[in-house]
Computed example of a mutant assay.
Amino acid sequence: MRARPAEAGTMAAEERRAKYSVPAVEKALDVLEYLAELAVPATQAQLARALGRQPGEIFRLLTCLELRGYLRRDPASGAYALTLKLFELSRTHSPYQRLVEAARPWMRRLAETVRETCHLSVLHQDQVLVLAQEESPRPLRLSVEVGSRHSPLRTASGRIMLAHLPERERTALLDRLPEWREQDAAARDGFIDRLAALRERGHERAEGERFAGILDLGVPVGGPMASIKAALIIATLRQGDGPDLDAMLPTLQATARAIATEAGLRGSPS
Protein backbone atom coordinates (compact mmCIF):
# COMPACT_ATOMS: atom_id res chain seq x y z
CA MET A 1 0.00 0.00 0.00
CA ARG A 2 1.41 3.41 -0.99
CA ALA A 3 1.73 6.14 1.63
CA ARG A 4 -0.39 9.25 1.18
CA PRO A 5 1.55 12.48 0.42
CA ALA A 6 1.19 13.82 3.97
CA GLU A 7 2.28 10.49 5.47
CA ALA A 8 5.20 10.21 3.06
CA GLY A 9 6.31 13.71 4.00
CA THR A 10 6.16 12.86 7.70
CA MET A 11 8.14 9.65 7.17
CA ALA A 12 10.78 11.50 5.15
CA ALA A 13 11.11 14.15 7.86
CA GLU A 14 11.53 11.49 10.55
CA GLU A 15 14.17 9.66 8.50
CA ARG A 16 16.06 12.92 7.90
CA ARG A 17 15.89 13.79 11.57
CA ALA A 18 17.26 10.38 12.60
CA LYS A 19 20.05 10.58 10.03
CA TYR A 20 21.25 14.06 11.00
CA SER A 21 20.45 13.99 14.71
CA VAL A 22 22.98 15.61 17.08
CA PRO A 23 22.28 14.15 20.55
CA ALA A 24 23.73 17.04 22.56
CA VAL A 25 21.72 19.59 20.59
CA GLU A 26 18.58 17.44 20.89
CA LYS A 27 19.01 17.33 24.68
CA ALA A 28 19.48 21.09 24.93
CA LEU A 29 16.39 21.78 22.82
CA ASP A 30 14.40 19.26 24.87
CA VAL A 31 15.27 21.18 28.04
CA LEU A 32 14.45 24.60 26.57
CA GLU A 33 11.17 23.45 25.00
CA TYR A 34 10.07 21.63 28.15
CA LEU A 35 10.74 24.66 30.39
CA ALA A 36 8.91 26.90 27.92
CA GLU A 37 5.88 24.62 27.98
CA LEU A 38 6.02 24.08 31.76
CA ALA A 39 6.22 27.85 32.41
CA VAL A 40 7.56 27.31 35.97
CA PRO A 41 11.08 26.51 37.25
CA ALA A 42 12.16 22.85 37.49
CA THR A 43 15.03 21.16 39.29
CA GLN A 44 17.66 18.98 37.66
CA ALA A 45 15.94 15.86 39.00
CA GLN A 46 12.53 17.01 37.74
CA LEU A 47 13.91 17.76 34.28
CA ALA A 48 15.69 14.43 34.09
CA ARG A 49 12.54 12.56 35.08
CA ALA A 50 10.33 14.47 32.65
CA LEU A 51 12.75 14.00 29.74
CA GLY A 52 13.63 10.38 30.50
CA ARG A 53 17.27 11.16 31.29
CA GLN A 54 19.61 10.42 34.19
CA PRO A 55 20.24 13.46 36.46
CA GLY A 56 23.98 13.25 35.86
CA GLU A 57 23.37 13.09 32.11
CA ILE A 58 21.99 16.62 31.91
CA PHE A 59 24.12 18.29 34.62
CA ARG A 60 26.78 19.59 32.21
CA LEU A 61 24.07 20.58 29.73
CA LEU A 62 22.23 22.67 32.34
CA THR A 63 25.49 24.26 33.48
CA CYS A 64 26.38 25.20 29.90
CA LEU A 65 22.92 26.72 29.24
CA GLU A 66 23.19 28.66 32.49
CA LEU A 67 26.66 30.01 31.65
CA ARG A 68 25.47 31.04 28.18
CA GLY A 69 22.58 32.95 29.73
CA TYR A 70 19.66 30.83 28.52
CA LEU A 71 18.81 29.48 31.98
CA ARG A 72 18.81 30.95 35.47
CA ARG A 73 19.30 28.72 38.53
CA ASP A 74 17.66 29.69 41.80
CA PRO A 75 20.33 29.37 44.52
CA ALA A 76 17.80 28.43 47.19
CA SER A 77 15.71 25.78 45.40
CA GLY A 78 18.20 24.77 42.69
CA ALA A 79 15.39 25.04 40.12
CA TYR A 80 16.13 26.22 36.58
CA ALA A 81 14.04 28.75 34.66
CA LEU A 82 14.30 30.31 31.22
CA THR A 83 15.77 33.79 30.96
CA LEU A 84 14.73 36.38 28.37
CA LYS A 85 17.67 35.59 26.08
CA LEU A 86 15.62 33.53 23.60
CA PHE A 87 13.03 36.29 23.50
CA GLU A 88 15.73 38.88 22.83
CA LEU A 89 17.19 36.76 20.02
CA SER A 90 13.77 36.30 18.42
CA ARG A 91 13.09 40.04 18.49
CA THR A 92 16.49 40.83 17.01
CA HIS A 93 15.90 38.73 13.91
CA SER A 94 12.10 38.47 13.76
CA PRO A 95 10.90 38.73 10.15
CA TYR A 96 7.69 40.22 11.50
CA GLN A 97 9.17 43.08 13.52
CA ARG A 98 9.35 45.46 10.57
CA LEU A 99 5.79 44.59 9.58
CA VAL A 100 4.46 45.37 13.07
CA GLU A 101 6.39 48.64 13.25
CA ALA A 102 5.02 49.68 9.86
CA ALA A 103 1.48 48.62 10.69
CA ARG A 104 0.94 50.20 14.11
CA PRO A 105 0.34 53.85 13.13
CA TRP A 106 -1.89 52.85 10.21
CA MET A 107 -3.88 50.41 12.36
CA ARG A 108 -4.31 53.08 15.04
CA ARG A 109 -5.66 55.47 12.41
CA LEU A 110 -7.97 52.76 11.06
CA ALA A 111 -9.39 51.97 14.51
CA GLU A 112 -10.02 55.66 15.16
CA THR A 113 -11.64 56.18 11.74
CA VAL A 114 -14.03 53.21 11.68
CA ARG A 115 -14.27 53.08 15.51
CA GLU A 116 -13.78 49.31 15.51
CA THR A 117 -11.05 46.96 16.69
CA CYS A 118 -8.60 45.74 14.05
CA HIS A 119 -5.86 43.12 14.16
CA LEU A 120 -2.99 41.97 11.95
CA SER A 121 -2.18 38.27 11.48
CA VAL A 122 0.35 36.14 9.60
CA LEU A 123 0.73 32.47 8.75
CA HIS A 124 3.28 30.96 11.11
CA GLN A 125 3.99 27.23 11.48
CA ASP A 126 0.75 26.38 9.63
CA GLN A 127 -1.37 28.48 12.00
CA VAL A 128 -2.75 32.01 12.10
CA LEU A 129 -0.61 34.08 14.49
CA VAL A 130 -1.99 37.42 15.72
CA LEU A 131 0.87 39.94 15.53
CA ALA A 132 -0.76 43.21 16.52
CA GLN A 133 -4.06 44.76 17.54
CA GLU A 134 -5.54 48.22 17.87
CA GLU A 135 -8.71 48.41 19.94
CA SER A 136 -11.82 50.40 19.13
CA PRO A 137 -12.26 53.68 21.02
CA ARG A 138 -15.79 52.53 21.91
CA PRO A 139 -16.43 51.52 25.56
CA LEU A 140 -17.78 48.14 24.37
CA ARG A 141 -15.34 46.50 21.96
CA LEU A 142 -13.86 43.20 20.85
CA SER A 143 -10.31 42.10 21.61
CA VAL A 144 -8.06 39.31 20.27
CA GLU A 145 -5.01 38.29 22.25
CA VAL A 146 -1.76 39.25 20.53
CA GLY A 147 0.37 36.12 20.16
CA SER A 148 -2.62 33.79 20.07
CA ARG A 149 -2.82 31.13 17.35
CA HIS A 150 -5.86 30.01 15.41
CA SER A 151 -6.98 27.61 12.70
CA PRO A 152 -6.30 28.80 9.15
CA LEU A 153 -9.43 26.94 8.03
CA ARG A 154 -11.86 28.47 10.51
CA THR A 155 -10.84 32.12 10.54
CA ALA A 156 -11.24 34.93 8.04
CA SER A 157 -7.52 35.72 8.40
CA GLY A 158 -6.54 32.15 7.63
CA ARG A 159 -8.71 31.88 4.53
CA ILE A 160 -7.44 35.21 3.19
CA MET A 161 -3.84 34.08 3.47
CA LEU A 162 -4.54 30.58 2.13
CA ALA A 163 -6.33 32.10 -0.84
CA HIS A 164 -3.24 34.12 -1.73
CA LEU A 165 -0.68 31.34 -1.37
CA PRO A 166 0.74 29.72 -4.52
CA GLU A 167 -1.26 26.56 -5.22
CA ARG A 168 1.57 24.13 -4.50
CA GLU A 169 2.42 25.85 -1.21
CA ARG A 170 -1.23 25.93 -0.17
CA THR A 171 -1.73 22.25 -0.99
CA ALA A 172 1.32 21.26 1.05
CA LEU A 173 0.14 23.33 4.03
CA LEU A 174 -3.38 21.91 3.94
CA ASP A 175 -2.08 18.35 3.73
CA ARG A 176 -0.18 18.93 6.98
CA LEU A 177 -3.35 19.91 8.87
CA PRO A 178 -5.14 17.04 10.68
CA GLU A 179 -8.48 18.88 10.48
CA TRP A 180 -8.10 19.13 6.69
CA ARG A 181 -7.25 15.45 6.27
CA GLU A 182 -10.33 14.50 8.32
CA GLN A 183 -12.69 16.25 5.89
CA ASP A 184 -14.32 14.39 3.02
CA ALA A 185 -13.71 15.22 -0.64
CA ALA A 186 -16.87 17.30 -0.99
CA ALA A 187 -15.96 19.51 1.96
CA ARG A 188 -12.43 20.00 0.64
CA ASP A 189 -13.66 20.92 -2.84
CA GLY A 190 -16.13 23.39 -1.36
CA PHE A 191 -13.41 25.03 0.69
CA ILE A 192 -11.08 25.37 -2.33
CA ASP A 193 -13.95 26.95 -4.29
CA ARG A 194 -14.50 29.38 -1.42
CA LEU A 195 -10.83 30.37 -1.50
CA ALA A 196 -10.99 30.95 -5.26
CA ALA A 197 -14.01 33.25 -4.85
CA LEU A 198 -12.28 35.08 -2.00
CA ARG A 199 -9.16 35.64 -4.09
CA GLU A 200 -11.29 37.00 -6.93
CA ARG A 201 -13.17 39.57 -4.84
CA GLY A 202 -10.14 40.46 -2.69
CA HIS A 203 -11.74 40.38 0.76
CA GLU A 204 -13.50 38.06 3.21
CA ARG A 205 -16.51 38.45 5.47
CA ALA A 206 -17.59 36.12 8.24
CA GLU A 207 -20.33 36.22 10.86
CA GLY A 208 -20.60 34.18 14.04
CA GLU A 209 -17.56 32.08 13.20
CA ARG A 210 -16.09 32.18 16.69
CA PHE A 211 -19.03 33.59 18.69
CA ALA A 212 -22.58 34.57 17.77
CA GLY A 213 -22.96 38.17 16.67
CA ILE A 214 -19.30 38.76 15.77
CA LEU A 215 -18.53 40.11 12.30
CA ASP A 216 -15.13 39.93 10.62
CA LEU A 217 -14.09 41.88 7.53
CA GLY A 218 -10.60 41.24 6.21
CA VAL A 219 -8.21 41.89 3.33
CA PRO A 220 -4.69 40.70 2.45
CA VAL A 221 -1.64 42.82 3.21
CA GLY A 222 0.75 42.58 0.27
CA GLY A 223 0.21 40.66 -2.94
CA PRO A 224 0.89 37.07 -4.07
CA MET A 225 4.64 37.72 -4.43
CA ALA A 226 5.07 39.12 -0.91
CA SER A 227 7.55 37.18 1.23
CA ILE A 228 5.22 37.37 4.25
CA LYS A 229 1.55 36.51 3.97
CA ALA A 230 -0.53 38.76 6.23
CA ALA A 231 -4.17 39.73 6.72
CA LEU A 232 -5.77 42.82 8.26
CA ILE A 233 -9.13 42.28 9.95
CA ILE A 234 -11.82 44.55 11.36
CA ALA A 235 -13.70 42.70 14.11
CA THR A 236 -16.99 44.11 15.35
CA LEU A 237 -20.33 43.22 16.92
CA ARG A 238 -23.62 43.09 15.04
CA GLN A 239 -25.89 45.74 16.52
CA GLY A 240 -29.30 46.33 14.97
CA ASP A 241 -28.84 47.17 11.30
CA GLY A 242 -25.13 47.98 11.69
CA PRO A 243 -22.28 48.18 11.34
CA ASP A 244 -21.95 49.03 7.66
CA LEU A 245 -19.13 46.78 6.45
CA ASP A 246 -19.47 48.06 2.87
CA ALA A 247 -18.65 51.56 4.09
CA MET A 248 -15.59 50.30 6.02
CA LEU A 249 -14.11 48.23 3.19
CA PRO A 250 -12.43 51.04 1.18
CA THR A 251 -10.73 52.39 4.32
CA LEU A 252 -9.60 48.88 5.27
CA GLN A 253 -8.19 48.27 1.80
CA ALA A 254 -6.38 51.62 1.77
CA THR A 255 -4.85 50.82 5.17
CA ALA A 256 -3.65 47.42 3.97
CA ARG A 257 -2.00 49.05 0.93
CA ALA A 258 -0.29 51.63 3.14
CA ILE A 259 1.03 48.97 5.52
CA ALA A 260 2.32 46.82 2.63
CA THR A 261 4.11 49.81 1.08
CA GLU A 262 5.59 50.93 4.40
CA ALA A 263 6.79 47.39 5.23
CA GLY A 264 8.25 46.85 1.76
CA LEU A 265 6.08 43.85 0.90
CA ARG A 266 6.28 43.21 -2.84
CA GLY A 267 3.17 42.95 -4.96
CA SER A 268 0.87 45.15 -2.88
CA PRO A 269 -2.82 44.77 -3.73
CA SER A 270 -4.23 47.51 -5.93
Rank of each mutant, 00 (worst) to 15 (best):
R115G: 06
L198S: 06
T255K: 04
L252A: 05
P137Q: 05
Q133C: 09
S94W: 14
R98L: 14
L215D: 09
V100L: 04
M225T: 15
A50D: 08
A260K: 03
A212I: 11
G218Y: 04
L237V: 11
G218R: 03
R154F: 13
E7F: 01
A186D: 14
A258V: 03
T113Y: 12
H150Q: 12
A8H: 01
D216L: 04
A172Q: 15
F87K: 12
P95S: 15
Q127A: 11
L86N: 05
P105S: 11
G223W: 03
M248V: 10
A186C: 10
R141G: 01
T251Y: 13
D246L: 09
K229M: 10
S270T: 04
E101Q: 14
W106C: 07
Y20V: 03
D216S: 12
K85L: 14
Q46I: 02
P137N: 05
P139K: 02
L62S: 08
Q54H: 06
D184I: 11
L131G: 04
E135Y: 00
E207M: 08
R17G: 01
D189I: 13
S268C: 09
L195H: 12
E167Y: 04
R60V: 06
P220E: 03
D30F: 00
L62V: 03
S136C: 10
R154Y: 11
Q54T: 02
D241K: 03
T43A: 10
I58W: 00
A212C: 01
E209M: 11
R257A: 06
R109Y: 04
Q133I: 14
V221H: 08
V22F: 04
V146D: 11
W106I: 03
A260I: 02
G158W: 08
A81P: 07
R109G: 07
V128C: 02
L99E: 11
P269R: 12
L245H: 08
G208T: 08
A102G: 06
A132M: 00
L249Y: 10
C118F: 07
A235G: 13
R159F: 04
W106Q: 09
E26T: 03
S157C: 10
H150R: 10
L165F: 05
C118I: 06
G208R: 10
R72P: 00
A81E: 15
L67M: 06
L120W: 01
A6S: 01
A81D: 14
L174V: 11
P166V: 06
A28W: 00
Q183K: 15
E200N: 02
A3P: 00
S151E: 08
P243N: 11
